[in-house]
Amino acid sequence: MASLIACPHCGRRPKEEFTIKGAALVRPEPEADADTWFDHVYLRDNPRGRYAEFWHHTSGCRRWLVVTRDTATHELEETRDAALWRRETAR
């Protein structure tokens, strides 16, 4: 994991300002079936390589971000505002 995260709002900031939640997953539709919900809540791709995660700039702008990075090399690829990401990955 990078020691610095490029917040789209605040610029490069130390990782300690951020909190990680986990995989950046789209929440299923309310009417989705039980298996879909189970998969969403409990199962993870857990790839060795490119991975998108939710990070929160807790001690900064307090925006949630989607950080794309490599779990094997810790290279950061992209950081986006989660709301923007959500709108663009809309159902």
Partner: peptide
Amino acid sequence: NSYAQRGNLA
């Protein structure tokens, strides 16, 4: 998440 067998200074 990490497979890198190394951590960070913080």
